Simulated assay, not measured.
Amino acid sequence: MSLEALRVNKGMTQQDVADRLGVSRNTVIKWESGEVKPKELVIYALAKLYEVDLDMMRVPV
Rank of each mutant, 00 (worst) to 15 (best):
V28I: 15
V17R: 05
D53L: 05
G11E: 08
S33P: 01
K30N: 15
Q14F: 03
V28N: 12
K30D: 13
D55Y: 02
L49M: 13
Y44V: 14
N9F: 05
E4M: 03
D53T: 13
N9E: 14
A18C: 13
Q15R: 14
R7C: 10
L3N: 06
T13N: 10
V61K: 14
Q14H: 07
K48C: 06
D53G: 09
E35A: 14
V28Q: 09
V8L: 12
V8Q: 11
L3Y: 04
S33F: 00
K37H: 05
S24Y: 01
A18G: 08
E32Y: 08
V52H: 02
A47D: 07
E4S: 14
K48I: 00
D55R: 12
E51P: 00
K48A: 13
M1Q: 07
S24G: 14
R20P: 01
R58I: 09
R20E: 12
V36P: 00
R7I: 09
V23H: 04
K39Y: 07
V59Y: 03
I29D: 03
P60K: 11
Q14I: 04
T13K: 13
L46A: 07
Q14R: 15
G22L: 08
L6Q: 11
G11T: 07
T27S: 15
Q14D: 07
Q14G: 12
V36G: 00
V36S: 08
V17C: 09
P60C: 10
M57L: 15
V36A: 04
L6I: 00
L3W: 01
A47T: 08
K30Q: 15
Y50G: 06
A5W: 01
L49I: 06
R7D: 02
E40Y: 11
E4R: 14
V17G: 09
A45K: 15
G22T: 03
A47I: 10
L54H: 02
Q14M: 15
M57F: 01
